[in-house]
Simulated scan of single mutants.
Amino acid sequence: MKTLTPILISLVAAIWVIAIAIISVQNATPVSLKFLTFQSIQIPVGLVLAFSAGIGLIGMALLQPLWGLAGSWQGKSRLDDDAEFFVDDEDF
């Protein structure tokens, strides 16, 4: 299973890149993004999608180790509680 995971991740990333490329070719008209009072320059939709996907991938890559640390910190106490709960009654 460990060798299959990188292949699946690469496949999903490749599908996203292909989808962004197709959308960017079909929607080459420039758009400007507005947020509250801020407005960006006019850039193609595909470029906006590519930047959004890239920022999302980088953000998840940075946050994933933090979630792993939080899960291991909470997981130890839950494993200890489970060990006390599942006691074999035949030994008594």
Score class of each variant (00 low, 15 high):
M1W: 11
K2Q: 08
T3N: 07
L4W: 07
L4K: 08
L4Q: 12
T5G: 00
T5P: 00
T5K: 05
P6I: 08
P6F: 13
P6Y: 15
P6A: 14
I7T: 14
L8T: 13
I9T: 10
I9G: 00
I9F: 13
I9M: 12
S10Q: 15
S10H: 15
V12Q: 04
V12R: 03
A13V: 12
A13T: 07
A13C: 10
A14L: 14
A14E: 09
A14M: 14
A14P: 07
I15N: 02
W16S: 02
V17R: 04
V17G: 01
I18S: 02
A21G: 01
A21E: 00
I23D: 03
S24W: 13
S24L: 03
S24M: 11
S24R: 02
V25G: 02
Q26H: 03
Q26A: 11
Q26K: 13
A28M: 11
T29M: 09
T29I: 13
P30I: 02
V31Q: 09
S32Q: 07
L33C: 07
L36N: 07
L36I: 05
L36D: 04
T37V: 05
F38V: 06
F38L: 08
Q39I: 13
Q39P: 02
S40K: 08
S40C: 11
I41Q: 12
I41A: 06
Q42K: 03
I43E: 11
I43H: 06
I43C: 04
I43G: 04
P44A: 10
V45M: 03
V45N: 00
G46F: 10
L47N: 09
L47Q: 07
L47C: 01
L49A: 01
L49Q: 00
L49K: 01
A50K: 00
A50H: 03
S52C: 10
S52F: 15
G54D: 03
G54Y: 05
I55F: 11
L57E: 03
L57A: 10
I58S: 03
I58A: 11
I58Y: 13
G59W: 14
G59H: 04
M60A: 15
A61E: 05
L62K: 08
L63F: 12
L63P: 00
Q64E: 11
Q64R: 07
L66V: 12
L66N: 02
L66H: 12
G68L: 13
L69I: 11
L69D: 14
L69V: 12
A70L: 15
A70R: 03
A70W: 13
G71F: 15
S72F: 12
S72A: 15
W73E: 04
Q74V: 15
Q74N: 09
Q74S: 12
G75C: 01
G75H: 08
K76E: 14
K76P: 00
K76S: 13
S77Q: 12
S77V: 08
S77L: 05
R78Y: 10
R78V: 11
R78E: 09
R78W: 09
R78F: 14
R78S: 09
L79Y: 10
L79M: 12
L79A: 15
D80F: 07
D80C: 02
D81K: 15
D81M: 10
D82S: 09
A83I: 12
E84G: 08
F85Y: 14
F85D: 04
F85H: 04
F86K: 05
F86C: 02
F86S: 03
F86A: 11
V87W: 01
D88M: 04
D88Y: 05
D89T: 01
E90Y: 08
D91T: 02
F92M: 04
